[in-house]
Nucleic acid binder design. Structure first.
Length: 229
DNA sequence: AAGAACCCCAACCGCGTGTAT
DNA sequence: TATACACGCGGTTGGGGTTCT
């Protein structure tokens, strides 16, 4: 059995004090990041390593961009979410100065609602059509699966939709946005026209399929590049 | 003014993966 | 090969702040 990451009875929990923050900053300034398990003791902190790591990554890192998300960032998050699903660390990796936690929180508190207001299903980035769609819905797609907000069966994905890092393979039943599978399976007539993933203005419907296919290949290449060490 | 309801976000938790032994 | 450990990820929680009634 796996041991707990730290001796819980000897650690503080909850909000960090300024003194704790300072100790962590000072320690990392001198010794650098890493060895999170031994860091708390070495830095004189009564915290578990995990907690230190999270505090540093999400709050104390000097390169963090604080403040509201710009419209450009919003657009990018939406588009990346359509492509990558709930892979917050991957999405955050493309937003300099933003953390996965920040992006995840922003998605759950703002962007989900914003999309729903616009009549877009945030889970699969399709228009919410309510009986307007003549063609059948895809039976393998769950309405709740991709976001992880509502509990429900996780949908295993196949093919290109399951974009993975060659180094950091996620769980086998990892969740990926249905939009991603949508891109792979067939053209989505009700997909947002401006979600062309190239972050450019949309093009005529006649060429959307072609471009999507082309873009998919480009994106895959880029992702593979970015994932390389 | 006060309590309820809602929202936001920092922090925690459990689990999967990679690596050392 | 098997096991233990460290790390990183995504989902969830809870407390403080804000808005509503």
């Amino acid at each position: 059995m796996r041991k707990p990451c730290c001796d819980k009875q000897d650690t503080n929990k909850g909000a960090w004090s300024k003194q704790e923050d300072q100790k962590l900053i000072d320690y990392i300034r001198i010794h650098g990041e890493g060895c999170w398990r031994t860091l708390p003791q070495a830095a004189g902190l009564l915290r578990c390593g995990k907690s230190c790591r999270l505090r540093w990554i999400n709050y104390l890192r000097p390169d963090l961009k604080r403040g509201n998300f710009t419209e450009d960032e919003e657009d990018l998050i939406i588009k990346l979410h359509a492509l990558l699903g709930n892979r917050w660390s991957l999405i955050a990796g493309r937003l300099p100065g933003r953390t996965d936690n920040e992006v995840k929180n922003y998605w759950n508190s703002h962007l989900r609602r914003k999309l729903m207001k616009m009549g877009i299903d945030p889970n699969n980035h399709r228009l919410i059509t309510r009986n307007l769609l003549p063609r059948p819905q895809f039976p393998h797609i769950s309405n709740t699966g991709a976001s992880g907000i509502s509990p429900g069966p996780k949908v295993p994905v196949t093919g290109d939709a399951n974009i993975r890092s060659p180094l950091k393979c996620r769980r086998d039943n990892d969740q990926v946005s249905d939009a991603a599978s949508c891109l792979d399976d067939e053209p989505c007539s009700n997909q947002l026209p401006d979600l062309n993933l190239d972050l450019t203005i949309s093009v005529s419907a006649a060429t959307v399929d072609e471009l999507e296919d082309d873009q998919r290949k480009k994106n895959q290449k880029q992702l593979n590049k970015l994932e390389e060490p």
